[in-house]
């Protein structure tokens, strides 16, 4: 039992990390209904460009974070205007194929440009342990948790409290009515996609400073993010947090008390259970799209 506090702490930290890396997908898959298989690659690009700006441009961590955010917002905007736009309103399959293709392109483009080696993003602070009684964490992890929570709250407020947020909600509920009401839906789609990309990339850079950035990390991130979004409920930020924490704690307990080797199975077991007993997810707002 004396291991329990540390397992719980590990699970909660991982849970916030999962919620953070799934945020972008909550927007793009949850709200826009684009089944975005390139999500993990946007995350990966965040880590790799974070490595580039801190190692090659010599920026400190936080300035680097801002540059990466601006760069990835532009990438997201362009991807939506030039690629996603072309398959909008044609059902889900074209979008799935498009984003699978995009993810293959992004991985191999990155391999070509920077190679397959793992890259280190210089962290914001030192990496030594901090002890709270029997629990060990690091400053960097606490910082990532804090930034993660700030981003989640920020994104939630943006959607709920701003004009842009209102326009987004209107557009995704009924694009035709929204455009009749004078909302420039094309811009709203692009802005949402850009925001989703930026969130994915920010979490990628933040977590790359704790782990490492590498061209091939995207696949696992995509899978776990889909798990989090489905657990929490489509398009719900509270759901993303709950889904992330649930996944993090479940993995930590399973890994701790049963076996590490099969830990990645847990997420999918949870998804199967949720789909059987509460298919709308833990927190979904029960509205169907027009």
């Amino acid at each position: 039992m004396d291991l329990f506090p540390q397992f719980l702490a590990n699970g909660l930290v991982m849970g916030v990390f999962y919620a953070l890396s799934a945020l972008g997908l909550t927007l793009i898959f949850g709200l826009m209904r684009v089944v975005n298989f390139a999500h993990g690659e946007f995350y990966m690009l965040g880590g790799v460009s974070g490595w580039f700006v801190t190692n090659h441009l010599g920026l400190d961590f936080f300035s680097g974070l801002i540059v990466v955010a601006a760069f990835m917002a532009a990438v997201g905007w362009l991807v939506d205007r030039f690629l996603i736009e072309r398959v909008r309103g044609q059902g889900e399959e074209p979008g799935i194929l498009l984003t699978i293709g995009l993810s293959i392109f992004l991985v191999n483009g990155t391999l070509l440009l920077v190679g397959p080696a793992p890259m280190k993003v210089a962290g914001a602070m030192a990496e030594g342990p901090l002890f709270f009684g029997p629990i060990a964490v690091t400053k960097l992890r606490l910082l990532a948790v804090a930034v993660g929570i700030a981003l989640i709250v920020g994104a939630h407020l943006l959607i709920r409290r701003t004009r842009l947020g209102a326009a987004m909600r209107a557009t995704f509920q009924d694009p035709m009515a929204a455009s009749l009401a004078g909302i420039r839906t094309g811009h709203v789609y692009a802005a949402t996609f850009a925001l989703g990309c930026t969130l994915a990339a920010l979490s990628g850079m933040l977590l790359a400073s704790i782990y490492s950035a590498q061209a091939s990390v995207g696949g696992l991130i995509s899978l776990k993010s889909f798990v989090v979004v489905i657990l929490g409920g489509m398009g719900s930020f509270a759901g993303a947090i709950a889904g992330g924490l649930l996944l993090g704690v479940a993995e930590a307990m399973w890994g701790g008390y049963v076996s590490m080797g099969m830990v990645d199975v847990i997420g999918f077991v949870l998804v199967i259970l949720i789909l059987l007993f509460r298919p709308q997810g833990l927190f979904s707002i029960r509205t169907e799209r027009a």
Binding site: L3, Q6, N10, V13, F17, A252, G255, G256, M260, V263
Partner: peptide
């Protein structure tokens, strides 16, 4: 990427 659970054991 995360080994904290394993390392707790």
């Amino acid at each position: 990427t995360d080994f904290f659970t394993l390392l707790t054991k």
